[in-house]
Each structure stands twice: as C-alpha cells, then as structure tokens.
Design a protein around this nucleic acid. Structure first.
Length: 492
RNA sequence: CGGGAUGUGGCGCAGUUGGCUAGCGCACUACGUUCGGGACGUAGGGGUCGUCCGUUCGAGUCGGAUCAUCCCGACCA
C-alpha cells in the first residue's frame, strides 16, 4: 500500500496541507494568500452553514447583507477598531482601467481615482453601524438581531489553507440592544450556540471562555471565545462573540429614545465563525489515512463500494445496493454508490477513507450469496459482516456512535494534554511539548506579553465552562497573587 | 519587511568539474490480463529547464539581474 499523505508524527503541518489538498477540500489559488474551495470542501461548509443558520434563526435572528466596500472614513471612526485592522486592509483606489498607451495590456486609468478610497471589508461593524443609525430611533426599534453570510478580506502576511487566508467566508452577527444587560446576554447566548455547534455537530470539545484585554477584538469591551485543541497540542480559536458596549453606537451616533423619553446610546454585540472551522474539523479528527468527518457534517455519510471481477456480477450487486440505498435515503442519510468500473475496489476504499466518509458498505459475490454486507467504520477502521436485513439499522446506530466516539476521542486527547502547571521552569518545559497549561496569572498585560515573548504561548482564555479553577495562587511568571487559573497554549 | 531555501511535462523529483537525442516516479491515452484493501504488462501523448541579460564553439548546468513560490520570524479569525 502506498502512502498518500505525510504522517502526523512526521510533520504535522505537512500532514495538514496534504490532507486539505488530497482529500479535495481546497487548494492555493493564483491569487496570493487566497484559496479555492473545491466542491467537496464546499459541501462540508454548506452543511455547517445550514446548521448554523438554523441555530441563528432559532434564537431569533434574521439574515441581511451589507456592502463589500467600506469608505475609509467609516473605519477610522472607532479608534481601537481602525488600529486593529489598518495593517491588513485591501484598498480600492480607482474605478477604471484603460488600454495601455505605452504598450500592450491595460493600466489603471489615473483619471479614475476615487475621491475617497474604499476598504474591502475586513469585518462589517462600521458599515453596519452606519446603517443601523438609520434604522433606530425608538426603543421600539430594538433589538435588531441580524446576521450576514459574507466574505471578508484581511491581508495577512502568512497564510494557510482554511486557517488563515487573505479572503475567507464567514458569518457575522451584529445586534443592537436597548440595555447593557441584554447585549451581554446576547453575546453569551451566541457563544453558547457556537459551543453547541462545535460539540454536537463538529464533534469538537471546546472550552468557552473570555479573552484577556490584549487578546480582545479591536473595539470590544469583552470577547468571548471557544477554544479547541488540535492533535499537535496547539490551540485554535474556533469562534468569537463580542460585547461591544456603546463604542460603535457612539462612533456612529446611534441613539434611541427610551420609554421615559431620554436619548440613549445603543448597546451592541457582534459574533462570527469562519471557514477556519474547516481547519478545526480537519485537525481535530484527521488521521494518517486522511479525514475523519463527523456524520453530522459529512456530505456523504455512507459510501457503497461494489466488489466484482466480472462485469456481469456488477448488475446484481448494484441492484442490491440500490435497495439498501433507497431505504437509507428514506431515513434522510446521504448515500453514494461508487459504481466506477475503471477503478478497483481497494483504490476506492482508500480514496473514501481519505475523504473521511464515516461508513462504508461493500458488497461482493460472496455477500450476495450469504445475503450480507461488509460494514466498515472510518473512525476505528474496523469492519464487520452484517445481514442485509439488519444493515439499515446498523448504519443508523453506527452513525450516531461514530459522532459520539470521535467527540470522546477528541475530548480524551484534550484532557490528557491539559496540565496544571505551577512553576515557571515547568511551564517552559511543558509548553514545548504542546497542550493547554492551566496556570495562575497576575492579570497584567505586561506579564502576558513577557510570557508570550519568552515562550510564544498566549492566554487562550479565562475559562468559564470547563477547567474553571477559582482558587488562590501565585502568578506563574511574576509570583504575584492570583484568584484563578487561565489557559495558556501556543495557538494557530 | 528581516533570515533561509527553491523554481526542470499536470504533480513529485533527478540531472550542476558546462557536451551529444533532457530523464524518472505518479497521473493521462489505447489494448490485454487482473479485481474481497491503493494491480500488472505492452505501446503511446505531453516539457526547451521561471524570466531577461551575459560568459562560451556549446548553458538545465557558470555569472548577474529580475520575478515568483515555500519555510522561519514580526502580524492575525
């Protein structure tokens, strides 16, 4: 058997890259830092979108769409916000090309210079709050609970497929509320939605927590996040939900008149997840044979591979498969029969494993005789023979089991690589091996910065729903008193 | 933007004390034999060696410039 992808132990980055490309998810494009998401990868993203969208609707949100271009002046209204994004913005300066007067091709027409440059949105707070100003005048107009599915552009120095691309797809929720309490509750509710999605659909155990001041979103008063551990022990921020206070309302002068007649600034939140989730999915579950997709998000949940050596045998096998597929279809599963005749079955097995299909059914002449099906599961790479009558039930229960099994595996991995660390020497040693380090911290940005400088580790979050550790202690770095442990890790 | 490296068929690479017709693996095409875990044989198609300039009888190979990509930093969802 020839290896298709690099092993995880050998070179984790290489493994990841191989996997993304060879499983047919995405590839680098001709445009630097941008990627092409291929149909199979996009199908996974669509399943994520569909589920998230449902969860947003279930929590009272609606979708809308705002412009791709943001006047430069909008971005600079909120001081911290512009500072946070200024270094990575793509800017439109002209609106026309002309044929090159001095040679072949086209050049930018200098006559067509824009009076005000347009920034390609790195995020939409500013354009949206500029719009919300027109939508809000009374407490009766609130809350506004809007989500946008869009692409954004951040001109990053170094990019990686799915994890950090110059252009990426995401959703961004932007809500406006009459009171601070309501906005805080919204931000908390939405990080809860993300955690629910990550755990129950992506089968990734995530930690919900709060960012430290220096890790906060530019312009936010509080940033809530979900953090996941990848199989190399590094952390990946999988989603964020921000309590923006009245910063954007003040910057864009968005006020409402309360019941009592007073003019008040509006309270805001924003929250988002991106195609980075695809990277999380790949790195959390993949193995040396390829992707392992959670059944809830797999575009193909069951693949059927006929085994035959004479073309005459194929008809009977396909007929049997058709019957089983029809029953699985009825139950709402997505099933593919791989009836290609130019590829051998062993090749198909390997290929579908690479693509992470959770369950594989194989039927050959022997099965036909015995009225059985070979059922193989991707997560454990085990297979068994099941009677045709029982196969639909078997698949149904297996899909549920695989979903929970890969969650459990990821959870066990994370917990086995999470350590309470109390001395600086131990910290420096352990951080090299990867994992989450639960440590005391004195609460200052200076200490945080020094630790990052010396070890590349950052505070991923102050955890609020797992690994919560409220206890007296001393800062791992400065020795000053601390009331709780926070999570340190190296991150993507 | 600093440090390092690399550009040779679609992909991965070899070829560099200059030399004759540029080679290998994978993929692709055709035919045949195979087919319960990534088949094999035979026959084919496809590259002017990133680009430009130079040295030379002769450059994939040497020199210079340039462009691009990748890795490591700084930055980041």
């Amino acid at each position: 058997m020839s290896k298709q992808i690099t092993s995880r132990q050998e070179n984790y980055s290489q493994w990841y890259n191989d996997l993304v490309v060879k499983a047919g998810l995405a590839e680098n494009s001709a445009v630097r830092g941008c990627m092409v998401i291929k149909p199979y990868g996009y199908a996974i993203w669509e399943k994520m979108q569909r589920q998230l969208d449902k969860m947003f609707k279930d929590t009272g949100h609606e979708n809308a769409y705002f412009p791709l271009f943001i006047p430069k002046s909008f971005l600079s209204r909120e001081a911290e916000h512009v500072e946070g994004f200024a270094k990575e913005c793509a800017v439109v300066t002209h609106h026309r090309l002309m044929t090159n007067p001095n040679g072949p091709g086209v050049v930018v027409d200098p006559e067509a210079k824009l009076e005000e440059e347009l920034v390609v949105r790195p995020t939409s707070e500013t354009i949206i709050w500029n719009t919300y100003k027109n939508w809000i005048s009374s407490y009766r107009d609130l809350p506004i609970l809007v989500n946008q599915w869009a692409n954004v552009v951040r001109w990053e120095m170094r990019t990686r497929l799915f994890l950090r691309t110059a252009e990426f797809l995401w959703q961004e929720g932007h809500t406006a509320h009459a009171t601070m309490q309501e906005a805080i509750a919204e931000a908390e509710k939405m990080i809860g939605v993300y955690a629910d999605f990550a755990r129950n659909y992506m089968a990734i155990p995530v930690i919900v927590g709060k960012k430290t001041e220096s890790e906060r979103f530019a312009g936010a008063l509080d940033t809530l996040c979900i953090e996941a551990m990848m199989q190399d022990g590094k952390a990946l921020q999988a989603g964020t939900s921000h309590f923006l206070g009245q910063n954007f309302a003040k910057a864009f002068d968005v006020k409402y008149q309360s019941k009592e007649g007073a003019l008040e600034y509006v309270w805001a939140t924003s929250w988002g997840v991106s195609t980075r989730l695809m990277g999380a999915l790949i790195m959390a579950h993949g193995d040396d044979n390829g992707l392992v997709l959670p059944p809830n998000l797999a575009p193909i949940q069951v693949v059927m591979v006929p085994i035959f050596n004479k073309p005459e045998q194929l008809g009977a096998i396909l007929e049997k498969m058709g019957q089983i597929k029809a029953e699985l279809d009825k139950r709402g599963y997505s099933v593919k029969i791989d009836d290609r005749e130019n590829v051998r079955s062993g090749f198909k097995f390997a290929e579908w494993e690479l693509k992470g299909v959770p369950v594989r059914l194989a039927i050959g002449p022997r099965d036909l005789e015995n009225n059985t099906v070979e059922v193989a599961r991707r997560d454990t790479l085990t297979k068994e023979s099941v009677g045709c009558d029982a196969v639909v039930e078997k698949v149904a229960s297996l899909l549920v089991e695989i979903e929970s099994n890969i969650y459990r595996k990821a959870l066990e991995y994370r917990d086995a690589h999470t350590y309470k660390v109390d001395t600086w020497d131990e910290f420096k040693e352990q951080i090299e091996k990867g994992g989450f380090l639960l440590c005391h911290w004195d609460g200052t940005a200076e200490t945080e910065a020094k630790i990052q400088e010396e070890t590349k580790a950052t505070i991923r979050c102050i955890p609020s729903d797992s690994f919560v550790c409220e206890e007296e202690g001393r800062c791992i770095y400065s020795g000053k008193p601390s009331k709780r442990r926070v999570i340190f890790a190296r991150a993507y």
